Deep mutational scan, measured.
Amino acid sequence: TCPLCKTELNIGSKDPPNFNTCTECKNQVCNLCGFNPTPHLTEIQEWLCLNCQTQRA
Rank of each mutant, 00 (worst) to 15 (best):
E43Q: 06
D15R: 05
T7H: 06
W47Y: 03
P37T: 13
C33R: 01
C22A: 02
W47R: 13
L9T: 09
P3W: 00
I11V: 10
I11C: 07
F35P: 15
V29G: 06
I44M: 05
N31V: 12
G34L: 12
P16M: 08
G34C: 11
C33N: 02
C33W: 00
N27W: 15
P37Q: 14
W47L: 13
L50C: 10
C2Y: 00
C5I: 00
D15G: 07
Q45F: 07
P3S: 09
L32T: 10
Q53C: 03
F35C: 12
Q45C: 06
I44A: 10
C5P: 00
C33S: 02
F19N: 12
T21I: 09
N20Y: 04
G12S: 10
L50S: 14
Q45M: 10
L48D: 04
N27F: 03
T42A: 13
L41V: 12
T23L: 06
W47Q: 08
T7Q: 12
L41Q: 11
D15Y: 14
D15K: 10
L41D: 11
N51D: 06
P37E: 14
L50W: 05
K14T: 11
T21C: 12
F19P: 03
L48Q: 04
W47P: 10
D15S: 09
K26C: 10
H40T: 15
C30E: 02
T42I: 08
P17E: 14
Q28D: 03
L50D: 15
N20R: 13
C22S: 02
Q45R: 11
L41T: 14
L4K: 02
I11Y: 13
W47F: 09
C2I: 00
N27L: 15
N36H: 15
E43P: 11
N20I: 07
Q53I: 05
T1R: 05
T1I: 10
N18F: 06
E46Q: 11
L48V: 06
N18W: 04
C2S: 01
K14G: 12
E43C: 04
Q28K: 05
E46S: 07
T54Y: 03
K26I: 11
N51L: 03
N27T: 09
I44P: 14
C49M: 00
N31P: 08
I11L: 05
C5E: 01
C33D: 04
F35K: 15
E24P: 02
G34S: 08
Q45W: 15
N36I: 07
K14C: 02
K14E: 05
P17L: 08
N36S: 07
T38N: 02
L32Y: 05
C30W: 00
N36K: 13
Q53K: 14
N20A: 11
N36P: 07
N10P: 11
F35E: 15
P39D: 07
I44Q: 13
T21R: 14
T38S: 12
T1E: 07
N36A: 08
I11Q: 13
F35A: 14
V29M: 10
F35V: 14
N31Y: 11
T21Q: 06
T21K: 15
P16T: 03
N27M: 08
T42N: 14
C52R: 01
K6H: 07
T23Q: 03
G12I: 14
E8C: 02
E46I: 15
N10V: 05
I44D: 03
T54S: 11
P37D: 15
L4C: 10
T42G: 14
T7G: 11
C49F: 01
H40M: 11
E8D: 07
L4A: 13
K6W: 01
L41A: 14
L9K: 12
C52G: 01
N18E: 08
L32E: 15
E24F: 04
K14N: 10
K14S: 07
N18P: 10
T1S: 07
N27I: 11
E8Q: 06
D15T: 11
I11R: 08
E24Y: 03
P3T: 10
L9D: 07
E24M: 09
T23W: 13
N20E: 11
N31D: 11
E8K: 04
G34E: 04
N31M: 07
C25S: 01
P16C: 10
K6F: 10
C49I: 00
L50V: 14
C22F: 00
P39A: 11
E43G: 11
P3K: 05
N10F: 08
W47N: 03
C22G: 01
Q45S: 10
C52Q: 01
E43F: 04
T54R: 14
N18V: 04
P16S: 09
L9N: 06
C52V: 00
N51C: 01
